[in-house]
């Protein structure tokens, strides 16, 4: 579904991502793990068109989407739920969700998505006319995921959905990601919480200083000595 070859991203002289290769197949959950500053978020930002790649190519469903702008990428079916939630603080929950569907032409059918999102996150239904900025951290994360789903994506990019959440809430978010995946959504998940992330993933990539250091099936990575020592705290 997604094929990344030799992707590099530079911020001025800093080479944040260096020639990485990555593949995601339809229906998978792929986890991208690594320390702070390893280039995970930058990779995602390049995929969604927020930063321009310095080199390499990205192919989505057979189309070369290298260098496309953010709008075309959303329209192609990739939705990015960014790190730190980035919801619109002075807009209501409903308006936030509505903007998630900004590129959609079939605005008559949005109620299907609203129902689905309120089913995943009943608390959002209760808070629908509340300003996004007044929600708790966990609720904001739910809103951010919900908003990303509104564009009816084929591939969902999730950047650190568990960041700063209480452990119980982290469990819940991961459970919902699995539910969303079971209903057919392909997910690329960035996490520092490597154990959780590999547990729900089919495959994983480990990034270190801008490159892919280790890759393989999630179950293998969970038993890989290097990964265990560096990311699973053993």
């Amino acid at each position: 579904m997604l094929k990344i070859r030799d992707l590099s991203v530079h911020y001025g002289k800093i080479k944040a991502v260096r020639q990485i290769d990555m593949d995601i197949a339809q229906g998978e959950i792929v986890s991208l793990i690594g320390a702070n500053g390893a280039g995970k978020s930058t990779t995602l930002r390049a995929l969604s068109g927020l930063v321009k790649a310095a080199g390499g190519s990205v192919e989505f469903e057979g189309k070369d989407i290298t260098g496309w702008n953010a709008k075309s990428i959303v329209e192609a079916g990739i939705s990015h739920c960014p790190e730190g939630r980035q919801i619109f603080p002075r807009m209501t929950v409903m308006e936030n969700l509505e903007l998630g569907a900004y590129t959609r032409k079939d605005t008559k059918n949005l109620s299907v998505e609203y129902d689905r999102i309120f089913e995943y996150f009943p608390v959002l239904a209760q808070r629908r006319s509340q300003m996004g900025g007044t929600l708790s951290g966990g609720e904001q994360q739910m809103l951010a995921i919900g908003r990303a789903l509104m564009s009816k994506p084929k591939l969902l990019l999730l950047d650190e959905p568990s960041l700063g959440l209480a452990p119980l809430l982290v469990e819940k978010i991961f459970e919902i990601i699995q539910n969303i995946n079971r209903e057919g959504m392909t997910v690329l998940l960035i996490e520092q919480n490597a154990w959780q992330a590999l547990n729900i993933a089919n495959r994983g990539y480990v990034m270190e200083t801008g490159s892919v250091a280790v890759t393989g099936a999630a179950s293998e990575l969970l038993h890989n000595d290097h990964v265990r020592r560096a990311y699973l705290g053993e």
């Binding site: 709008k71 619109f88 603080p89 807009m91 903007l99 998630g100």
Partner: peptide, 12 residues
């Protein structure tokens, strides 16, 4: 309110 997030919504 959030220019990057606006771009991610597909806003031109």
């Amino acid at each position: 309110q959030n220019r990057d997030a606006a771009k991610l919504m597909g806003i031109d």
